[in-house]
């Protein structure tokens, strides 16, 4: 035991800091914002009892959906395959484009500051638009059909994969890059040998993930005329043929579930 510990000297205690106003102000702001959004005079007039009372109104429709008309099944096979094909093609093109873009948009591998900011900027713009909006734009540009859907999904994939991948590149071990540079490699080969093997498992995982998203998204964008099963879904809803809508919904559920199951298994093995 030291002398200081045996005879403690009482030194000045630090003053307790004043409590911050940020927390109560934040809570107040949050409450005001919620009232503004829900109130009758400023917002959408949110009324919980009314919603609960209206819940039974859809019972008829839901009942029809729950009794699918399975004779409609054969007619959905081809559009369902078209949806899958759109998803596959869009994934391949989108992910292949995303790879070089992600190297430009990472601080670690970018060829220059200007390229980095341009790349990041373009990616931010691409990701700012939702997939449905892309579908509407391309339906207008190349007319109704799967091509519009594929183009929409390509942009959607590019945005997602390039963003995730460039962040993965940001986090790689830079030692191998230094080794490649010291061995006289140019920029392309430094990336190929020093960075690419490190991000490959993530790249495959992200690609499987957007393929999953594509199957789901291609049904939604089909509703605005971009081909596939979404077209069928849209048409049957317009005819109020809910027994047929039910068939499509069950099919989609099974398809997405199976693809997700396989994809999750594969991805778990990768990373």
């Amino acid at each position: 035991m030291t002398a200081a510990a045996a005879t403690p000297v009482r030194s000045a205690r630090p003053a307790k800091p004043r409590p911050s106003l940020a927390v109560p102000l934040g809570v107040l702001g949050f409450l005001v914002l919620t009232y503004w959004a829900a109130s009758e005079e400023f917002g959408i007039g949110f009324d919980l009892p009314a919603i609960l009372g209206d819940l039974t109104r859809g019972a008829g429709i839901i009942g029809e959906i729950l009794r699918p008309d399975w004779t409609f099944l054969p007619a959905t096979v081809e559009p369902m395959l078209e949806t899958l094909q759109m998803a596959i093609i869009a994934s391949v093109i989108g992910c292949a484009t995303a790879l070089p873009v992600s190297f430009i948009a990472s601080r670690v591998t970018t060829p220059g500051v200007a390229a980095y900011f341009v790349g990041r900027g373009i990616l931010n713009v691409i990701r700012a638009l939702p997939d449905l909006l892309y579908a509407m734009i391309f339906v207008a540009a190349v007319s109704i059909g799967p091509l519009a859907g594929i183009l929409a999904l390509v942009f959607f994939n590019l945005g997602v994969v390039a963003k995730l991948l460039s962040e993965t590149v940001d986090g790689v071990d830079q030692g191998p890059m230094e080794a490649a540079r010291a061995a006289g490699a140019n920029r392309a080969l430094t990336i190929r040998t020093g960075v690419f093997p490190q991000i490959l498992p993530n790249y495959v995982a992200y690609s499987l993930y957007v393929f999953e998203l594509n199957v789901r998204a291609s049904t939604v964008i089909g509703i605005v005329g971009a081909g596939g099963i979404g077209n069928v879904l849209n048409a049957q809803m317009k005819f109020f043929a809910y027994e047929r809508v039910g068939v499509v919904i069950v099919e989609l559920f099974v398809l997405v579930f199976v693809i997700e199951l396989i994809s999750i298994q594969l991805r778990r093995r990768l990373v």
Partner: peptide, 15 residues
Amino acid sequence: IRSRIGMIFQTFNLV
């Protein structure tokens, strides 16, 4: 010039 100079690192710098 670098192609004629081999380099070895403290943390190995392997992939």
